[in-house]
Design a protein around this nucleic acid. Structure first.
Lengths: 342, 342
DNA sequence: TTGTAAGCGTTATCAA
DNA sequence: TTGATAACGCTTACAA
């Protein structure tokens, strides 16, 4: 038996009462006779009545949905984050729109726009750029937003992020401690906030260890296995300002990039950590099982997702909740991809 | 400058025309004077007008959103699938709700219910069970649905899936070809359709090779690294019907489970493929870089996502599109986790 | 060429 | 205790 579009109106007809009585009964309004209430509720159940969120939302401007906009849905780094977000939302009766900005500001803008159009009550965004007009857009529209993975250049905004500078310091210090002085930085896209922070940490750590910064040692590139491998191929072939013997170690903005180095190692026949030592970033689950196990900087991803979504729901439910900025700490995981030169 | 809730009504006031004129102008209705149209459109842009999808949806029962319900958002297997889904949807102007059923039928039901309530125009579901009442629910509500990763027990339904029996056959045959005869199956949850299919393939392949099926060789378990490792610990400790020397090889329903075997190897000190040979399933990106590289059965995940979403949009846009069932082929990837006993 | 009015499914206010 | 009515923002006949 099919019941297309059961509405309170239809229930009203069936129950032989007015539709507003049905509405009240369904809200268990004590104004309605207890028996009528029960009777109507029973009918509603029988006919599998489900309130139309669109109508509801139109009326109360509440949709019980929030939007999550990230830069790469496929990355295990982000998966772990929105897994946690999804859990928190589900527990609180919210649904989640998910969109992929592919590290592209224009797509990000579109995504924000679409989500607002969908009537989301809030947004969790891992922003492509630190001072893009997209952030302005969000503020203008006064959409509750929590930024993750970086901190916008203003402090009237909620965010949860890991201190990328500290992470870079951890990574680079570890390498320097093992005797490395020529360290290649395989960074993310240049405009990416985390790329910028990470590079700052990289530079500072070199400086405080009296190692000269060499601009050509920083490579901005997509966070992608194949592209990273290609970039290394270029260096190995001598087609880059950096020559194969110029460096002994590599730090990467992401474990995925680090895996790109592993791919290159397999393809072009160098060894890790024999030829190059590698330190990743994120500590995605697979890194522990790589060959060799990847030394990396851990980010508390699950915690990031949990905090961000909890914070967002707080903001939504309590309109004058104050803006909070949470900074989480990275953590060095020493495994087997760094060789000691000492 | 903040423009809260710019509606056609407000635009109408500003433009000094009636709100329906605005509505038509925004739809570029030729009935409206070209100049008025341009003028109104310009104002709309200036005021950053964005139509309210809720109102729109309420009116036309179109929300331009679809729901994706999967069993584990964090699994790289699924990530690759919904990455592809997201791309197709985005290209076609749709948004995606995403929900995690955690291999639990009750949660799945809730998710379906919430999504329908949200007014999705269609659903892509990787169902927890093959003949759950949830599927009935979907048909009853006549929600356009494409099932992935398995085929419901009825053929009036769209689906895209990989032939899991064939996959199991590929895996088990490969092991038998290498001289293994005692093969442990680390399966997924018992009610999971893919678990059932996979086991069928496992059984048949044993049979056609004249190897006796031993029930205790099939372990149903969550698809989870830690739990898999614990299960193996149990066997290694002699606390299971299966003893450590009873088998020489392991096939798993998922690469994640296979990684659980790697975890156990690290923790309890056995070697792969020395002690046990392992064949995974899915070919998630990391398997290639594991230590040792995992021999596994490839599933075309990106293709699955692409086909499923394209098919769904077809169904939505053409109400009498016919139900299509697509079966994709698995493919053996030989790497280094199987030892030849010959 | 533009405006009026009804309706989508709710909620909420007020009247009966 | 129940019912009528308006409103949320939009689309779309139909009237002017």
């Amino acid at each position: 038996m099919k019941h297309p579009n059961v509405t309170i109106k239809i229930l009203a007809e069936i129950a032989g009462v007015s539709f507003s009585t049905v509405a009240k009964a369904l809200h268990d309004d004590p104004a309605i006779n207890i028996e009528t209430r029960r009777r109507i509720q029973k009918i509603a159940r029988e006919y599998n009545y489900r309130p139309n969120i669109l109508a509801k939302g139109l009326r109360n401007r509440r949709t019980k949905s929030i939007g999550v906009i990230l830069n790469d849905l496929q990355s295990p780094f982000y998966s772990e984050i929105y897994k946690a977000i999804g859990d928190v939302l589900h527990k609180n009766g919210y649904t989640m729109f998910l969109a992929d900005s592919k590290y592209d500001e224009a797509i990000e803008k579109q995504n924000i726009s679409t989500m607002i159009g969908q009537g989301v009550e809030g947004l969790i965004v891992s922003s492509v750029s630190e001072d893009s007009e997209n952030i302005e857009l969000l503020l203008q529209e006064s959409v509750k937003t929590v930024f993750i993975d970086n901190r916008p250049r203003r402090d009237d905004i909620c965010c949860v992020y890991v201190d990328h500078e500290a992470a870079a310091t951890l990574a680079v210090s570890h390498l320097i401690g093992a005797g490395h002085r020529n360290i290649l930085l395989l960074n993310g896209p240049e405009n990416l906030p985390s790329s910028q922070r990470y590079m700052m940490g990289y530079c500072e750590t070199l400086k405080s260890n009296n190692i000269d910064f060499r601009e050509e040692f920083v490579k901005f590139n997509a966070i992608d296995i194949a592209q990273t491998s290609r970039l290394l191929a270029n260096i190995l072939n001598g087609n880059d300002a950096v020559k194969p013997d110029d460096f002994t170690a590599i730090v990467t903005l992401s474990d995925v990039t680090a895996i790109g180095v592993y791919e290159a190692a397999m393809t072009y026949g160098f060894t890790i950590p024999g030829t190059y030592s590698v330190v990743g970033y994120d500590n995605i689950f697979a890194t522990k099982y790589l060959n060799p196990a990847l030394t990396t900087i851990h980010q508390p991803k699950e915690q990031t997702g949990r905090l961000a979504s909890t914070m967002l729901l707080n903001c939504i439910e309590d309109p004058d909740a104050k803006m909070i900025q949470i900074i989480l700490n990275p953590e060095l995981k020493i495994r087997a991809s760094v060789r000691s030169l000492l």
